[in-house]
């Protein structure tokens, strides 16, 4: 496998700043991938960057724009692994708890959906997605593993094995959590791993239901994890539907809600409203269509127009 480049390869071009939500909020290079890389090149250690590292929302926008092709998100996660997250013990206990539960029922389905916690909170929408895509919902969605990845907490091998073993025999896994998706591709190279956004937006009924006056909000993590392919997918969708997208001029997805662990555990507060307002700035839309349930409440609050999940637009038509 080709070895990923690390901070040493950073030329300081600042392209990552242009797409970084933390940069937009704080205008402070030290809170960006550029800042981490340059500080590390000059001898700083992870501990010197702790506050900055916990600020990152892991939207992964910096990955596709890096001309040196540094695995920026990987670099940040590596650095986080050298720190101790305030909730590390809780996360360890949660993963241990998963391993002592009775094994998940073995499904005969060839494909499963791994929902994220925000989607779990909306069982009606989750059921609709499952019906629309004709797919089973996994009992073990790996939410604890996704949190551990974010927090830089070591995942116990037996927990990882328990999560992955039932997935190995599948043809396809649809994943709502973008960070987990990226890692599943590494862990299960023979299984087709697709984001929930891509799966739903490829569905004919959903595509037909999008309108030219919609703002379509792509979930950033999954999109940026497979940017070279998905930029074409969404460009085709844009041409077909005429909808506006939450993409900037570089075709990078502007995130709305920061649902990453540091924000959820209040280690750092992100300016969600500020980002949502920037996403909507200057756009005239009659409806917002979201891939991630986490964005729905926030965008409804700041936009004043109906906000629906992608799975719901087919029903609206």
């Amino acid at each position: 496998m080709k070895k990923s480049k690390d901070h040493a390869a950073c030329s300081g071009c600042s392209l990552c700043l242009l797409v970084c939500p933390m940069w937009r909020q704080h205008r402070d290079i030290s809170l960006t991938a550029h800042g981490y890389a340059k500080a590390l090149q000059h001898g700083a250690a992870a501990a010197d960057l702790a506050a900055a590292l916990w600020n990152c929302t892991l939207c992964a926008a910096c990955d596709p724009v890096c001309p040196e092709q540094i695995d920026v998100t990987g670099m940040i996660l590596n650095l986080r692994r050298q720190l101790v997250h305030p909730h590390a013990q809780d996360l360890q206990a949660r993963m241990e708890g998963q391993t002592t539960r009775s094994p998940a029922t073995q499904s005969t389905a060839a494909s499963v959906l791994l929902p994220d916690p925000a989607l779990r909170e909306h069982p009606g929408t989750l059921a609709r997605i499952a019906a629309l895509l004709g797919i089973a919902v996994a009992e073990d969605d790996g939410a604890d593993i996704a949190l551990a990845l974010e927090a830089g907490v070591t995942i116990p091998p037996h927990r990882l094995k328990r999560f992955l073993d039932p997935l190995r025999r599948l043809d396809k896994i649809i994943v709502a959590e973008g960070l987990l998706l990226k890692h599943l591709r590494l862990w299960l190279p023979k299984v087709r791993i697709v984001s929930l956004g891509e799966a739903l937006s490829s569905h004919a009924a959903v595509r037909r239901s999008l309108r030219a006056t919609d703002l379509y909000v792509i979930e950033p993590r999954a999109y940026h994890a497979d940017y070279q392919r998905l930029v074409r997918h969404y460009d085709g969708l844009r041409v077909a539907s005429g909808s506006a997208f939450n993409l900037d001029l570089q075709r990078i997805a502007i995130p709305a809600t920061a649902c990453s662990l540091p924000q959820r555990s209040e280690v750092n507060m992100a300016d969600d409203e500020g980002r949502a307002c920037w996403m909507l700035h200057g756009r005239k839309v009659s409806r917002i269509v979201v891939e991630s349930m986490a964005d729905r409440t926030l965008l409804a609050k700041v936009s004043g127009v109906p906000v629906v999940h992608l799975a719901e637009v087919a029903a609206d038509a």
């Binding site: 030290s30 500080a39 090149q41």
Partner: peptide, 10 residues
């Protein structure tokens, strides 16, 4: 701090 200054080393 060196981390802040090093960002601008070149």
């Amino acid at each position: 701090h060196v981390a802040a200054r090093g960002t601008f080393v070149t």
